[in-house]
C-alpha cells in the first residue's frame, strides 16, 4: 500500500542529507568491484526473527520518481539493538524514518510495502501517525532540544499525550526519564534552565530522556552520537545498552565500532538494498556477502 501523499505545505522537515546522494547514486556501480545485486535480490543472513516487535516486508521508498529503498525485508526483535550500517546515501536513514512515518512530512516521499508494529499495519488508514509516534519514538542526529527549560523539554511529550494526571506525577515522569537517560545528577539543580544551554552530549541525553518520557515501545536513533565527542559518545552508548532492557531499539550509525559495541544484530545497506543481516559478531567477523566484507574492511564507505 502507499502512504498517503501529504498535501500540506507543512513539510519543512528536511530530507535526510545522505538520501539525496541515494537518489543520485542508485544504480551506480560500487567501488568494491563486487557483484551488484539485481532487483529481486535476496538478503544474505537472517532478516527474520521468531517473535518480532516490528516487521517490514517488501519496503520500497521513492522520492518522486527516484527509488531510494528496494524490497527491504527486515524484522526487529524486542529488547534488542539493531544497527543499520552502510555507506553514505545507502538509504538507512530513509528506511529508519519509515518506521514512525516521519517520511510523511516529505511531500515527494512515497512508501510502499508492509510495515507492521505488533502485527498492526503502520501505514493503514486506521493508524494515526500521532499515536504511532507515541509508540515509536525517535532520537535525531543533531541534538534538538526545544528552546524551553530542561523540565519542559522532558514534560512536553507526557503533557501532549496526557500521561500525567497531576503535577507530582509529571514531576515523577520527568525525574525517572532523566534518571534513565543518565542526566538527572547533572541537571537536577537546573531543571528550570534552558535545555539549549547544556553541552552537546547532555543535550542528546536530554533528547533521549524526552523520547523515553512518552514511554514508547520502539526507539529509533538516527546517528545519535555523530555530533558528539568520544566521551559523550561512550556515555550515550552505555545508555543505549541499558535502554535495551526495556525498549526495542534501531540505530543508524556510520561508525562500525559503535555498531559492534552497542548492537546485537547488524543490517548492512548498500544503495537502497539490504545486503546482509545477522548477529553483530557474525557479520563483523564473518561477513558472507562481498559488499559487506568490502565495507567492514574499509574498502568502501
Amino acid at each position: 500500500m502507499m502512504s498517503e501523499q501529504p498535501t500540506t505545505a507543512a513539510t519543512r522537515v528536511r530530507v535526510p542529507e545522505d538520501d539525496d546522494d541515494a537518489i543520485l547514486s542508485v544504480g551506480a556501480t560500487s567501488q568494491g568491484g563486487a557483484v551488484e545485486p539485481e532487483n529481486g535480490y535476496t538478503t544474505v543472513g537472517e532478516p527474520f526473527v521468531d517473535q518480532p516487535k516490528m516487521q517490514t516486508r517488501d519496503v520500497n521508498v521513492f522520492y518522486a520518481d527516484k527509488q531510494a529503498i528496494f524490497d527491504v525485508n527486515l524484522d526487529f526483535a524486542a529488547n534488542e539493538v539493531l544497527a543499520l550500517i552502510g555507506p553514505s546515501g545507502c538509504g538507512k536513514s530513509t528506511y529508519l524514518r519509515c518506521l514512525n512515518r516521519m517520511n510523511d512530512t516529505i511531500p515527494i516521499c512515497r512508501v510502499a510495502g508492509e510495515l507492521l508494529l505488533d502485527d498492526e499495519d503502520i501505514y493503514a488508514k486506521s493508524m494515526d501517525p500521532v499515536l504511532l509516534r507515541a509508540r515509536v519514538g525517535m532520537v535525531f542526529q543533531k541534538p534538538n532540544p526545544f528552546p524551553k527549560s530542561v523540565y519542559d523539554n522532558v514534560a512536553y511529550g507526557p503533557r501532549l499525550h496526557g500521561l500525567a494526571a497531576n503535577k507530582s506525577e509529571l514531576d515523577e515522569i520527568v525525574e525517572t526519564s532523566l534518571k534513565r537517560a543518565g542526566l538527572w545528577n547533572e541537571v537536577k539543580d537546573r531543571l528550570a534552565e534552558p535545555g539549549t544551554g547544556l553541552s552537546g552530549g547532555q543535550q542528546q541525553r536530554l533528547c533521549i530522556a524526552r523520547t523515553i518520557a512518552v514511554n514508547p515501545e520502539v526507539i529509533l536513533m538516527d546517528e545519535p552520537a555523530s555530533a558528539l565527542d568520544p566521551i559523550a559518545t561512550a556515555v550515550i552508548e552505555e545508555l543505549i545498552d541499558e535502554l535495551r532492557q526495556k525498549y526495542t531499539i534501531a540505530i543508524v550509525t556510520h561508525s562500525m565500532q559503535q555498531a559492534a559495541r552497542v548492537s546485537q544484530r547488524t543490517a548492512y545497506f548498500h544503495l537502497g538494498k539490504l545486503i546482509e543481516v545477522g548477529d553483530t559478531d557474525r557479520v563483523f567477523t564473518n561477513p558472507r556477502h562481498q559488499l559487506t566484507e568490502n565495507y567492514i574492511t574499509g574498502r568502501i564507505g
Partner: peptide, 25 residues
Amino acid sequence: KAVPPSIREAALGLGASHTQMVFHH
C-alpha cells in the same frame, strides 16, 4: 520559515500533531 526543521522534527517525533507542532513550537 526561519524556524529550524530540527525543532519541527523533534515535536513530530514525540507525537505532536501538525497543528500542535505549529502552535507549540
